[in-house]
Design a protein around this nucleic acid. Structure first.
Lengths: 174, 174
DNA sequence: CTAAAATTTCAGAAAAGACTGAAATAACGG
DNA sequence: CCGTTATTTCAGTCTTTTCTGAAATTTTAG
């Protein structure tokens, strides 16, 4: 696929952003490319467009499929796999947040709970340490409880709530 | 500083978490150590406790100071720098989010605006691409507007809003 | 000032992570 | 089946990032 200068810069930008957030640069670039592409692309075209090895695309696509940010499609008379990205930014963010929660936050919560419970009978660790960890755990629990409570609200409701943010604050504030 | 097994595991865990989110492992470990430590530590003690080079601590601390997640303190009769971490998890997250917004989101917003404006007179890029980028920009703008509107609310108000999340949704929902 | 202590800098080493290409495997069409 | 095309795997290489240690710099106490 031919990249115009803007598309090129866009893909480079998101590759860069990805690597700052712990996402493999190629994976981020593939996603950016598919996000822009007007139609599904097959792996060879992705590799050629981005100038990376075909095998690298294979691995990257696999990861994006696992994240459910990309889907496979097919065309009649062509047995290659074609790929399309989720194009709705709200959905993209939802999937990423949900994935990172599951892979990173949930295990962390579990870990912190173990720590706190172990520390109840651990006399060698200062009490202060236990309080710190418990505080952090409580904070994370508050956050995830909130997330769970809003994550499946319809987008419209979410948008309204976001727009009302400060007004709600004023009403509650008293 | 002597680390008990739980403290040790805690620090390793956050080092690991950090590196998954694009934060240098040593930096994350230093922060975790200071978050737990009952009193301020000096650089040598940090290096020794974590088993990393003194110079590495120097660089890491500098970064944490730049993030304002760590502060310097002093003791009478000791000219070394001692360091303490921000211990309030809410404040920790606030500082991190604010920092990442400033360093990454704001430049991205600026970049996307340039793209969209350039694409107005760019005939070689498909119109679809412009719409995709514009859609993403709008989404990010909605998100940051919301963030700006709530970021300086008092914690109590924020907590109330979070607890009420779904109830508000029901009222608004109609 | 001087000397000792504390801190920082930074070139090079080490480690981690990403990427390639060749070979293996899988998926079809006939 | 068999040959062709598509995809995946993975050992080895390359790149990037992180870390170290020695030297330079800064700070401070006397």
């Amino acid at each position: 696929m031919r990249l115009t200068p803007v598309m090129h810069r866009y893909i480079v930008h998101w590759g860069e952003m990805g690597s700052r957030w712990g996402i493999n640069r190629s994976v981020a670039q593939i996603h950016a490319l598919l996000y822009l592409a007007p139609n599904p692309l097959h792996a060879d075209e992705i590799a050629e467009t981005l100038g990376i090895a075909r095998s690298n695309v294979s691995v990257g696509i696999k990861e994006l499929l696992a994240w459910e940010l990309v889907q496979v499609t097919h065309t009649l008379g062509d047995r290659r796999d074609f790929f399309v990205a989720q194009r709705d930014p709200w959905e993209v963010i939802r999937v990423i947040v949900e994935g990172r929660k599951r892979r990173e936050i949930d295990p962390t919560l579990a870990f912190l709970r173990t720590c706190v419970s172990e520390l109840e009978t651990d006399s060698e660790t200062p009490a202060e340490v236990r309080e710190r960890i418990a505080g952090q755990l409580e904070f994370l629990e508050t956050l995830t409880r909130w997330y769970d409570s809003i994550k499946s609200l319809p987008r419209k409701t979410l948008l309204k709530m976001m727009r009302l943010g400060q007004k709600i604050a004023k009403v509650i504030g008293e």
